[in-house]
Simulated scan of single mutants.
Amino acid sequence: MFFQHSSDIWRDFPELVPGALYAEGITADAVPGARIAAHAERATARLAGASEGELPEVQAWRRTFTRMGLKPTQYRCASEALLRRFRKEGSLPRLHPLIDLCNAVSIGYAIPIAVFDVSRITSYVEVRHAAGDETYLTFGGETEHPPAGEVIFADAEGRAHARRWTNRQSGHSAVRDTTANVLIVAEALHDTAARDVESLLATLTDELNGLWPVTPKSAILTPAAPRFEFPGQ
């Protein structure tokens, strides 16, 4: 299996820095509370000096959404949405230890992170423009068809595992209690994205190693090396 971005995405967004990580052996019984709190403290400190919409990481995604023809205050990248909720409520809901951890790392870095159950993916995931015939399963169980041209995460069966690039994931490949093997993707476009995504991947690797008996594999992708390969199911 593999993860990659289409050549069109690299052409249109040359500033993109994607990081990908694969891990096996995830379970639902880990207790990441202290680790989550540490990343939440970092987010709190950053929000004390600026709103989430003023952070350079979020501003870069707002510009990207505008370029895609989306109103950035209507459709927010995942990290902005999480930061906004965190600022208003002081915490994030607990869903699954891996999701809770990734959400905490996401608000700490202000970078969107997607997590996919590999067993629910067919052959590959490619970030590309939709053809218009793909299917997307909402968390409420409804099926949608992203319009042609929308940036989606698509697999070999035409399933859209995320819509509007970093806006919303699909319920089909969401992490659940039975999830064991995962693909984690972090993407950034701001000026220090290369340094920050490298730091984020290192942080995630350390956190995963501290919670599960896993040996994560990760890489930062580039136009010259755009594909991240990982074991299939």
Score class of each variant (00 low, 15 high):
residue 161 H to I: 13
residue 175 V to R: 09
residue 183 L to M: 12
residue 163 R to A: 06
residue 187 E to R: 15
residue 180 A to M: 05
residue 187 E to D: 06
residue 165 W to G: 00
residue 174 A to E: 05
residue 175 V to Y: 05
residue 186 A to I: 10
residue 163 R to N: 02
residue 180 A to C: 13
residue 181 N to M: 05
residue 173 S to F: 05
residue 168 R to E: 03
residue 177 D to W: 03
residue 170 S to K: 03
residue 185 V to T: 09
residue 173 S to T: 12
residue 159 R to K: 08
residue 187 E to G: 07
residue 171 G to E: 01
residue 182 V to S: 12
residue 170 S to W: 02
residue 178 T to P: 03
residue 187 E to S: 14
residue 176 R to K: 13
residue 162 A to H: 14
residue 170 S to N: 03
residue 181 N to G: 11
residue 178 T to R: 15
residue 180 A to T: 13
residue 158 G to F: 07
residue 166 T to R: 08
residue 179 T to R: 12
residue 169 Q to E: 05
residue 168 R to T: 07
residue 158 G to S: 09
residue 187 E to H: 02
residue 159 R to E: 02
residue 157 E to H: 13
residue 181 N to K: 15
residue 185 V to N: 06
residue 186 A to F: 10
residue 157 E to W: 12
residue 161 H to F: 07
residue 172 H to I: 02
residue 167 N to Y: 13
residue 163 R to Y: 05
residue 184 I to P: 09
residue 171 G to W: 04
residue 176 R to N: 13
residue 181 N to H: 11
residue 181 N to P: 02
residue 180 A to V: 12
residue 169 Q to F: 01
residue 174 A to P: 00
residue 182 V to Y: 06
residue 169 Q to M: 06
residue 164 R to Y: 04
residue 183 L to V: 10
residue 174 A to Y: 05
residue 159 R to D: 02
residue 157 E to D: 15
residue 172 H to R: 13
residue 164 R to V: 04
residue 173 S to W: 07
residue 167 N to F: 12
residue 165 W to I: 05
residue 183 L to T: 10
residue 184 I to G: 11
residue 160 A to V: 02
residue 167 N to D: 00
residue 184 I to K: 10
residue 168 R to M: 07
residue 182 V to P: 12
residue 180 A to R: 15
residue 162 A to Y: 10
residue 157 E to I: 07
residue 160 A to F: 00
residue 160 A to R: 03
residue 187 E to P: 01
residue 186 A to T: 14
residue 163 R to H: 04
residue 159 R to I: 02
residue 180 A to D: 10
residue 168 R to K: 12
residue 169 Q to L: 04
residue 171 G to P: 01
residue 168 R to W: 00
residue 173 S to K: 00
residue 168 R to H: 01
residue 157 E to K: 14
residue 177 D to A: 12
residue 171 G to N: 01
residue 181 N to S: 15
residue 171 G to L: 03
residue 170 S to Y: 03
residue 169 Q to A: 07
residue 168 R to G: 00
residue 162 A to D: 06
residue 177 D to C: 02
residue 171 G to D: 01
residue 157 E to Y: 08
residue 173 S to V: 08
residue 159 R to P: 00
residue 164 R to S: 09
residue 176 R to P: 00
residue 164 R to E: 04
residue 187 E to C: 15
residue 177 D to I: 08
residue 186 A to S: 14
residue 186 A to N: 11
residue 173 S to R: 03
residue 171 G to C: 04
residue 179 T to V: 13
residue 183 L to G: 08
residue 169 Q to C: 04
residue 163 R to L: 07
residue 166 T to C: 09
residue 182 V to I: 14
residue 164 R to I: 06
residue 168 R to L: 11
residue 182 V to W: 10
residue 187 E to I: 15
residue 160 A to I: 01
residue 170 S to I: 04
residue 166 T to E: 11
residue 180 A to Y: 02
residue 179 T to F: 11
residue 167 N to I: 06
residue 164 R to P: 00
residue 187 E to K: 12
residue 171 G to V: 01
residue 171 G to I: 01
residue 166 T to K: 08
residue 179 T to P: 09
residue 168 R to N: 00
residue 172 H to K: 14
residue 182 V to A: 13
residue 177 D to M: 03
residue 176 R to W: 03
